[in-house]
Amino acid sequence: MAERSVISVHTKPDVSERLSRLASATQRSKSFLANEAIERYLAAEEQFLATIEQRVAGIDAGEGISSAALLDRFEDRMKAKFDQPS
């Protein structure tokens, strides 16, 4: 059997009720569903942080554009979009 760790989570009553309904509908335990939700959340957050770290490393390496250049690009696109004849 896999090792397990027990945690206690406090939720709002409506969240607990929703979890109970979903567990019943899917014939899964509330613990199984909570663990799945936590695993998905952690994977998404870890990916988000990894992306930020990659982007920061790119900026540190001189990649990217200045805020002034970005603003110029934005203004050019807005002009192109709104200055076109209908």
Rank of each mutant, 00 (worst) to 15 (best):
A61H: 08
L49H: 03
L70M: 10
T11M: 03
D72N: 15
V9K: 00
F32I: 06
R77K: 14
S66F: 05
A23N: 03
E63F: 05
I65N: 02
D76T: 15
R55L: 11
F32P: 00
V9P: 00
M1V: 07
Q84V: 14
K81F: 14
V9N: 01
E45P: 02
G62Q: 05
F74S: 07
T51K: 03
R77G: 08
Q27F: 08
Q54V: 15
R73A: 15
V15M: 05
F74D: 14
M78D: 10
D76K: 04
T51I: 07
D72T: 09
K12W: 11
A80T: 15
S29W: 02
I38R: 07
M78I: 15
L49Y: 03
E75G: 01
I59T: 03
I38Y: 02
R73D: 15
S5P: 00
R4Y: 15
P85W: 12
G58T: 05
D60Y: 02
L42K: 06
N35S: 13
E17P: 00
K79G: 07
S29V: 11
S31Q: 08
A34E: 00
N35M: 08
S5I: 11
E45T: 05
D60R: 01
D83F: 07
N35P: 04
I38N: 08
L19I: 04
Y41D: 13
D76R: 13
S20A: 09
A61L: 06
Q47Y: 07
Q27A: 10
E17M: 02
L42T: 09
K79F: 12
I38S: 12
R18Y: 06
K30Y: 01
I52W: 02
K79N: 09
S8F: 02
R77V: 11
S66R: 09
S31N: 07
E63L: 13
A2T: 08
A37F: 14
D14Y: 08
I65E: 12
L49S: 10
A2D: 13
E3N: 12
T26I: 01
G64E: 04
V9A: 02
L22E: 12
K30G: 00
S29C: 04
S86A: 10
T11A: 13
L70A: 15
A2V: 12
A25D: 12
E46I: 07
A80P: 10
E46P: 02
P85L: 09
S86Q: 10
E45L: 08
F48M: 14
D60M: 00
L42V: 14
V15Y: 01
S16D: 14
A61S: 10
E36W: 06
A61W: 03
A25E: 09
S8Y: 01
R18M: 11
A50Q: 15
H10L: 08
E39H: 02
S16W: 00
T11I: 10
A57L: 08
